[in-house]
Amino acid sequence: MPELRTAIFLDFDNLVSGLRDGAGSEVALRFAQQPEIWLERLLEDRPRRALLRRCYMNPAGVLDDEAGSRFRYGEFRWAFMAAGFEVIDCPRLTRLKNAADLRIALDAFETMLGAAPCDEFMLLSTDSDFVPLLVRLRAADRRTRLVAHPEVGRIVRAAADEIIGLDVLAGWLGWQASPEPGEAFGAASPADLLAVVRDIMTEAQDPVHVPHLGQMVRNRTGQTLRGSDFAGYGSLDALLTAAGGFIRRDGPGGGHVLRPEWADQPPAA
């Protein structure tokens, strides 16, 4: 079997958050402090040479462990450098968003066109925004491997050659799934997410702010709407239509979601 020339692009904030929500803060901390453990498992299934290893991180991000200790993401820089990663600072551009996904897309595309092109691109992120990049890499005859939430939507799954679930990655770090409710990994199917959105909107007395809808879905299911590729429908508008004909009205912070009978009402002041 020929040796693959591999490029690894890690959205650190995204993976740490996904592991924390799905397997607990101790597993997320082990991921951050001992990258050599999971990296070895990630590369071992066939001959590879990881020519490029890049970790995109907001150094001001915070991870709290179960004992209440607080770790700044910047404290993990040395561990990733010791594992051969180039660490690239991606501070937040807004209250909720940094530039890691855009930087990864640009750097991956540049690598694809480079003088020593890679055969395989590994993206470690649960962000469905990478679908266009995955499609473009495939069109350029590059193998793609995505480490993401195990319930990633079918559009994302179809765009990658291989998916490794965060539950598998957590298992490499010593995590074992519990039969008790509350585990985020695999807890909610697309049908479950639709039902939760339907329940939230049925219970609502007023239009629901889009970020608030996302937070309520996450609180009830352990999944994010974006991380589930909007329950596999590819967009929020498509999910809302499937859930019950709900309507998104544009506005600050992503706008509001309305029940159909509210559509003719003027926007709230």
Rank of each mutant, 00 (worst) to 15 (best):
A28N: 12
L102H: 08
A100K: 08
L39R: 07
T126L: 02
A140R: 13
H209N: 09
D65C: 05
P207T: 10
G153F: 13
F121K: 02
E120H: 07
G61A: 09
W175H: 12
S235V: 07
A243P: 08
F85P: 06
P59G: 11
M201Q: 15
Q265D: 15
P35A: 09
E75P: 04
G174Y: 09
G165H: 11
D192E: 01
E3M: 10
D167T: 01
E120C: 04
E110N: 14
S228P: 00
E261A: 14
T94Y: 03
K97I: 01
P2G: 02
I164Q: 11
A28M: 07
D129G: 03
L133W: 03
A191T: 01
L63P: 13
P117E: 03
D141C: 08
L19N: 12
V147I: 15
T221E: 04
S235W: 08
G222C: 01
A187M: 01
L239I: 05
D64N: 05
T126H: 11
R5Y: 01
L193V: 10
R49G: 00
F31W: 07
I155F: 11
F80A: 05
S178R: 09
D45W: 03
Q176P: 08
D11K: 10
A83W: 10
N14F: 06
A139G: 10
D127C: 12
L15Q: 03
V147F: 10
H212N: 02
G74Y: 14
E3P: 04
T202M: 15
R77K: 12
P59R: 05
P179D: 13
D127L: 09
E26Q: 05
S235T: 10
A28I: 09
P117T: 06
R143L: 09
G74F: 11
R198Q: 15
P252V: 14
A263C: 11
D13M: 08
L213W: 09
R103K: 06
A238R: 14
I104L: 01
D192A: 09
L15K: 04
V156G: 06
G18L: 01
I37S: 11
R157V: 15
Q223T: 08
R138I: 05
G24I: 03
L19W: 05
A177V: 00
R49Q: 12
I164W: 12
P207V: 07
F9V: 05
G114M: 02
E26V: 06
E180W: 07
A28H: 06
D264G: 12
E261K: 07
I88G: 04
R249H: 15
A108W: 11
F12M: 10
L133Q: 06
W172Y: 14
L134F: 12
R103V: 06
L51N: 03
D192Q: 03
G22K: 00
W78P: 00
N219K: 03
A116H: 04
S228K: 09
I37G: 03
F9I: 00
G232H: 10
Q223W: 01
T224M: 00
G174L: 13
L146I: 04
G114P: 00
D199A: 15
R259Y: 15
V168I: 13
M201P: 15
